[in-house]
């Protein structure tokens, strides 16, 4: 019980990072981006490449940080991967979504995102192969916090949780204290009015993609650290991330954070009552149940 709760929180942190980017894009651009989770894959794989590169140049970087399986090289790589992913997200928007936005409707965007997801996933598979890979082959043993009730926690998970919370905190300050944050909110409220007031819409949109990409890359690396990396992690994660976004309410960054935790916890707790064969359906049960009570998610507002 407590174990499931703890696991849920730790898994939820990764989902939250993914959901923040998704909710921002869905809010500003008003479309359900099914390719968002592929940004996690791009992040995870570019970190893998940088990691190999850095560890090769400076072997000392390959040492582990404290009890974690995170190395200095991987930490550096994560920042590089955030850059690469943010940039790719922006470029994908520039070459695909922006053009479709100009002539098509919202559903065209949704479909284009399906197509983009398919392309990214398979190109990654072609380059890196279809097998799972790991940042570190070592298994870090979980630490027993208490034996009755049983509670085991892996150091990596704590690290990921703290890092995720730190990233969220930084984002919070960016959104609430900077001009960009205000601009973002203005655009979300009313794009035309914001443009009239001198906000450059294209710049805000580009920044939203970059932020979404950065957070996704971090989520991808954290996921890879705790689990494994393969070309289909985007496919595996897209649904829980969507669930987190919707539970939180589209457009609400804090909702997305909370949504991630709720979905993580619920998915872990569900197995206490359901046979494990039904686990893929759990995130949707949560969505359905929540939407019946609150048709716009926890913090979402009716949007036109």
């Amino acid at each position: 019980m407590i174990q499931s709760l703890a696991d849920g929180i730790l898994v939820g942190a990764i989902l939250s990072l993914g959901a923040i980017g998704l909710t921002m894009v869905m809010h500003i651009l008003r479309f359900a981006n099914f390719s968002h989770a592929e940004l996690l894959s791009i992040g995870a794989y570019s970190a893998l490449v940088f990691d190999a590169l850095f560890s090769g140049i400076l072997p000392i970087l390959a040492n582990k940080i404290g009890p974690f399986s995170m190395t200095w090289a991987l930490t550096l790589s994560m920042f590089c991967a955030m850059g690469v992913t943010g940039l790719s997200a922006m470029l994908i928007d520039r070459f695909v979504f922006k053009r479709i936005r100009e002539k098509g409707d919202e559903l065209s965007m949704v479909f284009a995102s399906f197509g983009v997801a398919m392309i990214i996933r398979n190109v990654l598979g072609l380059i890196f192969g279809l097998k799972s890979q790991l940042y570190s082959n070592d298994i870090v043993f979980a630490v027993m916090i208490s034996s009755d009730p049983m509670l085991l926690i892996k150091p990596d998970q704590v690290f990921v949780l703290l890092a995720a919370l730190l990233i969220m905190l930084v984002l919070h300050f960016v959104l609430s204290r900077t001009t960009f944050g205000y601009a973002l909110r203005a655009v979300a409220e009313n794009p035309s009015l914001a443009e009239v007031s001198g906000i450059r819409l294209s710049r805000v949109i580009a920044l939203v993609w970059i932020i979404g990409g950065c957070l996704a890359a971090a989520a991808g690396v954290f996921y890879g650290l705790n689990n494994h990396i393969n070309p289909v992690i985007g496919r595996d994660l897209v649904l829980p991330i969507f669930a987190a976004t919707i539970v939180g309410g589209i457009g609400s960054v804090y909702g997305a954070v909370l949504g991630g935790f709720i979905v993580g916890i619920a998915a872990n707790m569900a197995l206490l009552v359901l046979p494990s064969g039904y686990s893929p359906a759990v995130p949707f049960m949560i969505i359905l149940a929540l939407l019946l009570v609150r048709p716009h998610g926890l913090f979402g507002e009716p949007q036109t």
């Binding site: 197509g115 997801a117 398919m118 392309i119 190109v123």
Partner: peptide
């Protein structure tokens, strides 16, 4: 799959 994705986009 890549081709199909490209066709759709």
């Amino acid at each position: 799959f890549i081709l199909i994705g490209l066709v759709i986009v």
